[in-house]
Design a protein around this nucleic acid. Sequence first.
DNA 1: TCAAAAGATGAACGTTGTTCACTATTTGAC
DNA 2: GTCAAATAGTGAACAACGTTCATCTTTTGA
Lengths: 195, 195
Amino acid sequence: MAGVQKAKSEETHRRVLKAAIAAVEAGGMEAVNIRKIAADAGYSVGSVYKHFEDQDALLLAVNSVTLGRIKNLMASTVETVDEPLERLKVLALAYLAFARDNRNLWITLFSHQLPEGKPVPEWHMQENIALLGFIAAPLRELEPTMLEEDLAARTRTAFAAVHGLVTISLEARFVGLSGEKLEEEMNFLVERLAG
Amino acid sequence: MAGVQKAKSEETHRRVLKAAIAAVEAGGMEAVNIRKIAADAGYSVGSVYKHFEDQDALLLAVNSVTLGRIKNLMASTVETVDEPLERLKVLALAYLAFARDNRNLWITLFSHQLPEGKPVPEWHMQENIALLGFIAAPLRELEPTMLEEDLAARTRTAFAAVHGLVTISLEARFVGLSGEKLEEEMNFLVERLAG
DNA sequence: TCAAAAGATGAACGTTGTTCACTATTTGAC
DNA sequence: GTCAAATAGTGAACAACGTTCATCTTTTGA
């Protein structure tokens, strides 16, 4: 496959994915309607299926882009701070800010469930796990003697705790903490866990 | 409405809800198929709609039962321990145990999203918020002088952090901590937050 | 006794995700 | 340049779903 076909294929893929991301941003996971996506991208339904196996695969691609954005945000955040504990704090606040500014993308990332029997693809698990590196590094600086195994567990715990605070604050079922108070609690959480 | 009609109405409601709970337990949120639920309960589709406004209302009812079970579990857990910090630990472990033992119910409870424009009903928010009382009490014992407002925030933070650890450990996208190590991390988390 | 009210039914409708037979375009060997 | 194979793109058709509603059956209470 060369030249024109490759370009066409890539553009279709790109435009379909772009339409799907826009749909999620506008109306959440439920807004990913294949007919609408196809129309928005300027193709027929059949073409969507030439590039994505099914709706789940399309949502997985959306989530992969979302994870990439989070990764970029974290990467540019860590550069700004030297001190490890402070770095963990700004990382947590950046994660929170992303969730608030990209509510639907964030919710879709974590609440889209693959049907039973379809395991999460290895490459997507790696994308998730990659985020943990940002947290593991400052934790290691703070605890140079900790066993690698314990550090891995502690890293997941720290991420999970921050993730939980973000989750609950976005949930409509709880009256969440808002604004400044939430950021105070985030700092408290990080300080207690890593300080 | 009296006698036979009331009994019939209540039994239908009960059997439909029971079938829905069984469906969620067996196959998660996606398994709540109205035709299947109706057949399992021994009624027609129309009867389901006489007792639940729509699928979301039915899932809300399932989640309400799930929350009740969690509340009962927590209520019987707090009775077993006097010391406040220890009580927080067993509460966290009980919450974790419930999620592990009732994976599909737990995931449905937290990942079922109402469509835009349909707010979570007040009574369901209260059911959620009621759980926080179990956490607020021991926290208050540990910090008798804390302002009520700060205690409320701290309570949400503690719940959120534990909730996050449970969430991540159940997620297929992360390689979660398993078994004993997870419980160690849970104890660490509670101790750091409340100790 | 009987008309009104409430319970129960299931065919029918609109909207989905998905498939596939089909046409149009591109490719590379000759 | 020719042309058959490969690839891109189409949209009607299907099955499964949530939901509605005209209809029938049972219960109620005056």
